[in-house]
Write a protein that binds this DNA or RNA. Structure first.
Lengths: 196, 196
DNA sequence: GATTTTTTCGACTGTCAGTCGATTTTTCTA
DNA sequence: TAGAAAAATCGACTGACAGTCGAAAAAATC
């Protein structure tokens, strides 16, 4: 019961690496088992299908990517900083650049889409909670918080993930974030500093 | 030079129907040629690959879907009505419901994503032009119009395409559309009537 | 040490995208 | 209009790939 766990972890790790570097569609089960040095039957002893492997790889990634977010959630920060902090923690930085790169490649559409949906699912409740705090404190003035948070995530994903964002895009992002949450103009200006 | 064109059209039409009803991934070239009653070689005489077929099918769909939009663009309507009219013309209605249905199915992620991107590419310039009119007329007050329009499209796609939208979502959409474009509160209230 | 359970193996199957040389049909030209 | 050239069609074949299965090896249990 220990050996098996370890083997599965190893397989997941290999799949993870390969899915990112070559794309999910361009990675064959044969590729994975060759790298792992095991037989086909063994692979299918641990996974129902290639797609289920992807699902589990994505679970791993979501865990990783939301870890920083969860920490910020519990930190002692002003509400606006918390929200923006969480959102920007979702963008892989530094050592995770290859992930970003890979996800943007067209051959990874499916993976990208799946991750985005799962990320939204996971993060909307977290952010909604913080945003509620914000309205309680009178910093924000808005209703339908989860919908608005969802929109905020969609926008930031599009603006920041799809290619290097321009100054104009940051301006719009700041503007729309404030208005989306009903915050005073200037509340989100600190984002500009954060970018660099 | 006439026969060939017609055959290609026929193939595109069959592919279009099949991609929508069973999903791109679940439609094999063999399925298409069987339905068309031709041999494999003939298919590949007209198409480089299955993916290129998809690309051309999407071209067809974009043409179709933006036709109504182009008409509204030239109609004599107030700017806000024009913008909302164009956006809602992109959502297939009535007889096109199956398309919507098919596109939401997870096995059509790739198609959905490709169509969305192409749609945005095509429609942003159209809408940006109208929005510019709006600011010229003093109805809207905003800069960076193309970015804002892009965001507007993203939001409407998410809110209206992903499942049946609620009243709350409409409220938020109206609110955010007004604020995104810098319009007076109430400018977009007419959307509520339009929905039904 | 025997028996049961877990893990591993790899040959095999069926499906599918795409190729290619041969053949038929259409169009052009002398 | 015969005969050459071009366009269109055919289908058997290839190679890649996901997934299956029964048998063997390894580990755990008694």
């Amino acid at each position: 019961m220990k050996k098996g766990e370890k083997r599965k972890l190893k397989l997941l790790e290999i799949a993870y690496r390969m899915f990112l570097s070559r794309g999910y569609e361009n990675t064959s089960v044969d590729d994975i088992i060759e790298e792992a040095g095991i037989a086909k039957g063994t692979y299918y002893y641990y996974f129902e299908s290639k797609e289920q492997t992807l699902e589990e790889v994505i679970d791993m990634m979501i865990d990783q990517e939301t870890e920083a977010a969860r920490k910020i959630l519990q930190a002692d920060l002003p509400v606006p900083q918390k929200i923006v902090g969480i959102i920007s923690s979702l963008r892989p930085s530094q050592e995770e650049l290859p992930i970003q790169d890979a996800l943007m490649h067209p051959e990874n559409t499916i993976m990208h889409e799946k991750i985005l949906n799962r990320l939204i699912e996971t993060v909307v409740p977290m952010l909604a909670e913080v945003a509620q705090e914000g309205t309680d404190q009178g910093i924000f003035h808005c209703d339908h918080i989860p919908i608005r948070i969802r929109i905020l995530l969609l926008i930031s994903n599009d603006l920041f993930n799809h290619g290097n964002f321009t100054g104009d895009e940051i301006d719009v992002f700041i503007d729309i974030t404030e208005k989306l949450l009903g915050a005073e103009k200037g509340t989100m200006d600190f984002i500009r500093e954060l970018i660099r």
